[in-house]
């Protein structure tokens, strides 16, 4: 995939990003886009949400602005701020304002990580007003029909503090993502990395073992992303057991006994 950089966080996607649909998510997204409804992607980490958005941006031939949210993200980081240049103050649009002006897709990744007061700036954009007030400029931006707001959210984190507020979530059309079925996941791994189907199937089986451990010592099982990583290492000549350790087990936990337990699983399997 080649990307032409326009700005650090906004780009057009020229080549089709490989995305294997799991259900009817492509149709729903297209319909929501036509109806100018904002979209919420729910699902555990590494299950293809970002890839899906990239695929949709390509499909709809739109530029994509991605913002990874974190707990220091302020409203100004999204909307914009004055900077001082050579003794003058200059207004600089934040990624959200810029996406609204240009009518791009704006994807706010892991929205719950942002502070609650930051989250509310998207409210007027996410209902039928579709506007972004910029207080500091005294301006209200009206989103053009081509603008599309998408956010992602991982409900797996059980923390009550990190739950998405009802007033936020009820504005969105929700698409639920989960790990693909074993067959599909095997295809994804094989196609994405070029390892033989049989080996991809073993990796998916190994992923199942780590997913069995979810709740008994692991917070999460291996995501599709981690399987892709391991498969890449294997493709490059690393032994499967080593690849599983480095790319999967180490990414899942720091607990020595858990690491040892997972190592016993992979050495039993391969």
């Amino acid at each position: 995939m080649t990307a032409r950089a326009l700005k650090t966080d906004e780009y057009f996607i020229d080549e089709e990003p490989y995305y294997e649909p799991i259900g009817d998510e492509i149709e729903i997204f297209e319909s929501a886009y036509r109806q100018q409804l904002p979209i919420l992607l729910k699902g555990p980490t590494g299950c293809g949400k970002t890839r899906f958005i990239e695929h949709m941006a390509w499909r709809l031939k739109k530029s994509l602005v991605t913002v990874s949210c974190h707990d220091d993200l302020t409203a100004s980081d999204l909307v914009g701020r004055f900077l001082v240049k050579g003794g003058e103050t200059v207004w600089v649009d934040g990624p959200l304002a810029s996406a609204v002006r240009k009518g791009s897709i704006c994807y706010l990744d892991e929205i719950v990580e942002a502070r609650k007061d930051t989250t509310v700036v998207i409210h007027p954009l996410a209902d039928d007003r579709r506007v972004l007030p910029i207080d500091k400029l005294g301006e209200i931006l009206q989103a053009p029909p081509g603008f599309c707001l998408a956010i992602s959210y991982n409900p797996g984190y059980q923390s009550v503090l990190k739950d998405l507020k009802q007033s936020t979530r009820q504005r969105f059309v929700a698409l639920e993502f989960d790990y693909p079925s074993a067959e599909l996941e095997t295809n994804i791994i094989a196609k994405e990395t070029g390892i033989p189907h049989e080996q991809a199937a073993r990796l998916v089986k190994f992923a199942g073992m780590t997913r069995n451990l979810k709740g008994s010592g692991l917070e999460e099982g291996a995501s599709t992303r981690l399987l892709v990583h391991a498969a890449r290492l294997i493709k490059d000549g690393i032994s499967p057991v080593t690849a599983c350790h480095a790319a999967i087990a180490q990414a899942l936990t720091d607990d020595d006994e858990m690491l040892a337990g997972i190592a016993e699983l992979s050495s039993s399997l391969f």
């Binding site: 780590t210 337990g261 997972i262 016993e264």
Partner: peptide
């Protein structure tokens, strides 16, 4: 015991 327990929990079926 803990390592073995993790090992068994990773296998499919009843925990």
């Amino acid at each position: 015991a803990t390592v073995l327990l993790h090992f068994c929990h990773g296998l499919s079926g009843r925990q």
